[in-house]
Write a protein that binds this DNA or RNA. Sequence first.
DNA 1: GATAAAACCCTCAGTACTGAGATATTGTTC
DNA 2: GAACAATATCTCAGTACTGAGGGTTTTATC
Lengths: 181, 181
Amino acid sequence: MTRSLSDTNCCLVSQPDAGPGARRAAERSEPQALALKLWTVLARAYASVLAHSQADIARHGLTPGEFAVLEVLYHKGPLLLRDIQRKILVSSGGITFLVDSLEKRGLVERRECKEDRRARYAALTPEGERFIAGVFEEHATAIERAVSGLDVDDRRVAIDLLKRLGHHAASLPRPGEGETG
Amino acid sequence: MTRSLSDTNCCLVSQPDAGPGARRAAERSEPQALALKLWTVLARAYASVLAHSQADIARHGLTPGEFAVLEVLYHKGPLLLRDIQRKILVSSGGITFLVDSLEKRGLVERRECKEDRRARYAALTPEGERFIAGVFEEHATAIERAVSGLDVDDRRVAIDLLKRLGHHAASLPRPGEGETG
DNA sequence: GATAAAACCCTCAGTACTGAGATATTGTTC
DNA sequence: GAACAATATCTCAGTACTGAGGGTTTTATC
């Protein structure tokens, strides 16, 4: 495996059941305590499901980044590199690197963009299409198993809550953005 | 910033509103479609809140790993390296690396463990304690702001759902674990 | 009490990226 | 239509780790 659970090692703790944290928690307002708790369980739930996702991806010799590129091309068809970059949230160097390595493996090819000669498309090759089709179906099964702790009604409620949580956080400027000091 | 949103670039897409994905989604069972959707919005919500968390952490010149170590020591008191390692989910080399660098900065110190001479404690120095106290209070505010898309009742529901989701996923063997081929 | 197995930490080569800067092309303003 | 800003990709040095292997100490079994 290429990357581990430490992808998520950020603010996973703060469960003040013992130690100095127990005293500090008592001084915290309830909304803030719930906010910290929510972030903790969100990170832990994400880490637990991610472990399943990555274990499945690693079985096929893919890094998470490579899988993400193949998956987005599989679902959306040929895309400009910058659109892939924004969808899977990698750096500019990262998308070049990922498409390079998938191109070397014959799963993806670059195509020119006639409307904008700065830009390039990435598209699945027939071999890449066949490959990701199989990998993705197995992956869907692995994910369904990983989230089987919630039944379909719970899943619907969770989807609604997480959507609102995510959209709102994404719409807020991040700490340190656009400040002077 | 040291690590980016690509920490989460795994299965972020699969929103089959357009492209080849739209047709494939129609063939998928509803529970599985909900499972994939849940994983997608979980990953996106996590990424969005993480961006706030990391931006705040980076302002203080800390990596996510360093912050995680300071935070766990702040909340739990002195801990054996292996206990920190398990709580923040880093590799064995990673915890040595992180404690090394925090020790060089004078924020953490190693202490001997008399009951088990293989093991070592890590503990905050007085300077480290002062430092993380300030950083953590700011951090709590940043997190509360990041999750402000949900009110306190929603937070309670989300916490319950995510706990169940996470615990169940963590209890399941991961794909490829303990197989023969 | 000797032997083997396990647990803890450290070392270090390897890795999947990041992000600042370079190059090429496109849009915009005067 | 020239100058300038903006955008898309690529380059490459740097990084925060990973994970296999090794030394030391502890635990379990005979």
